[in-house]
């Protein structure tokens, strides 16, 4: 439970802990109990290592412990932030104290509200004077320090968000999307694999999505978020979905099932499931 979870052998590790649910997490529907994993991911490539997000501050010491177990010390570390929210930046200062962070990156944007620039001013982070790099607008969509990690700017978001896709392992890092699962126990398995009991229903998916993306119920019927997500999946082969919250979804059968449910919801978010 406290060890990193190997998602793709030798390449992707899930880091972080779980949070006990008692109406204390704003993106989990009221009344839901159990535990929800809070995730960040270490991607180990031939020449570089990329940490996608840094988890929540409450798990910062655990994340550092986990990184010490799997982080190759002979490769430069890049931290890529999918969002500037606290569930993505909470471990940054602690990680910088233990590991030299060669690059701090986020996707490209021209938005004075996106808060990414302020991340470097956090206590602990400011001491290192690290600069945040952004993909230039209209420039490459790859994570700057990687040859296989692609960044995607999604339509479906609250605050500024960047998804990441690993072309080698076909893993989709979906940030705050597909984070609709919880576990019954604190030490439950952190992945959902083919053959595992399906924890999601259309009702539970809708409840989680409305808790996070509150505006969905007022959606117009042009279905832009649905079309955008369909395009993302049509253009890429996806075998794993690695969200910021909840279980890591693995295997085409599991992926297709939750993708289909998500599209059904996004195309008619104002309707209760039949």
């Amino acid at each position: 439970m406290n060890d990193p979870t190997e998602i793709v052998p030798g390449r992707i590790y899930r880091l972080g802990g779980t949070v006990a649910l008692h109406d204390n997490v704003s993106w989990v529907p009221a009344g839901v109990r159990g535990y929800q994993p809070q995730n960040c991911y270490l991607v180990i490539e031939d020449e570089t290592v990329t940490l996608i997000d840094t988890g929540i501050a409450a798990h910062r010491d655990l994340i550092v412990e986990q990184m010490l177990k799997v982080m190759p010390r002979d490769k430069p570390l890049t931290v890529f932030l999918t969002r500037s929210e606290y569930d993505c930046i909470g471990g940054l200062a602690a990680i910088q104290q233990h590991f030299p962070v060669a690059h701090l990156l986020a996707g490209g944007s021209v938005n004075p509200f996106d808060g990414f620039a302020g991340v470097t001013e956090l206590e602990g982070t400011w001491d290192s004077r690290i600069q945040l790099g952004r993909n230039p607008v209209g420039g490459s969509s790859m994570v700057d320090t990687s040859k296989d990690l692609e960044t995607i700017t999604p339509a479906l978001r609250l605050l500024v968000t960047f998804w990441v896709y690993d072309r080698v392992s076909k893993t989709f890092f979906s940030s705050d999307l597909f984070g609709h699962t919880v576990t019954a126990t604190a030490d439950a398995k952190l992945t959902l694999d083919p053959g595992d009991p399906d924890p999601t229903t259309p009702e539970s998916l809708r409840a989680h999505m409305l808790a996070k993306f509150h505006w969905l119920a007022q959606s117009l019927p042009d279905g832009v978020p649905a079309r955008d997500l369909k395009t993302v999946f049509a253009d890429r082969e996806i075998e794993n979905i690695a969200p910021s919250h909840g279980l890591v979804l693995r295997g085409k059968e599991v992926i297709q099932r939750d993708f289909d449910r998500m599209i059904t919801l996004l195309e008619h978010p104002w309707e209760m499931p039949a």
Binding site: N111, P112, F113, D114, A155, R157, L158, L159, V160, F213, W215, Q218, S219, L220, V224, P225
Partner: peptide, 18 residues
Amino acid sequence: FILRAALYWLRYIDPNPL
């Protein structure tokens, strides 16, 4: 501009219920 930047999701909804 502030609305587009700070409340991105406005572009997907009918705001009248709000």
